[in-house]
Amino acid sequence: MPYPGQHADKADGEEDDMEIPVDPTTIAEYALIYFAAIAGIILLLLPILITFVLLLFVAGAIQVAAVLLKVATVGLVRGIVGLFRHPGEPRPPRGHGGRLAPH
Rank of each mutant, 00 (worst) to 15 (best):
V53I: 15
L46M: 07
H86K: 14
P92H: 06
M18W: 06
M1C: 03
I62R: 15
P47D: 10
I33M: 14
I27G: 00
D17R: 05
L45V: 06
R91I: 02
G97H: 06
E14D: 09
F52Q: 10
P2L: 04
L69Y: 05
V67W: 14
L68I: 08
V77C: 07
A37Q: 11
T73E: 03
M18D: 07
Y3Q: 12
L100P: 01
A101W: 09
G88A: 05
A101V: 11
K10T: 02
Y3R: 12
E89N: 05
V71P: 00
K70M: 05
I38C: 08
P24K: 08
H7K: 11
K10R: 08
I50R: 07
Y30G: 03
V74D: 05
A72G: 08
G95L: 06
L43M: 15
V77W: 07
A101Q: 14
L54A: 15
E14P: 00
A59S: 10
V67N: 13
P102W: 03
P24D: 14
L54H: 12
D9G: 00
L45Y: 11
V81F: 02
M1P: 06
L56I: 15
L55I: 08
F52L: 15
I50G: 02
D16Q: 10
L46H: 13
P93Q: 01
H96R: 01
Y30H: 08
A8G: 01
A66G: 10
F35A: 12
V22M: 09
D16T: 06
L100E: 07
L83I: 09
P90Y: 06
Y34G: 13
G88E: 10
I27E: 11
V77Y: 04
A11S: 14
L56R: 14
P21D: 11
L68D: 09
A59T: 08
L44N: 13
E29L: 14
D12V: 06
A72Q: 12
V22F: 09
D12Y: 03
I42F: 15
A65S: 15
L46C: 00
L44C: 13
P90M: 02
L68Q: 13
H7L: 04
P102R: 09
V71C: 03
K10Y: 01
L45P: 00
G60Q: 03
V53M: 09
T25I: 03
H86T: 08
G5K: 12
L45W: 13
D16L: 00
T73F: 06
P47V: 11
A11Y: 12
L83H: 04
T51W: 11
A65L: 15
A61H: 12
P21N: 07
A36W: 13
E15P: 00
L46N: 02
K70Q: 13
D23R: 13
I42K: 12
A72I: 08
D12G: 01
V81H: 04
L46Q: 07
L69H: 06
F84S: 03
H7E: 12
R78S: 04
V22R: 03
L49C: 13
P21E: 14
V53W: 08
R99L: 04
A28P: 02
T51I: 08
H96P: 00
I38F: 09
V22H: 03
T73Y: 04
F84D: 03
P4D: 02
E19Q: 05
E14M: 01
I48W: 15
T73R: 12
H96A: 03
L44Q: 10
A61I: 07
G98Q: 10
V64P: 01
A11D: 12
R94M: 04
G82S: 14
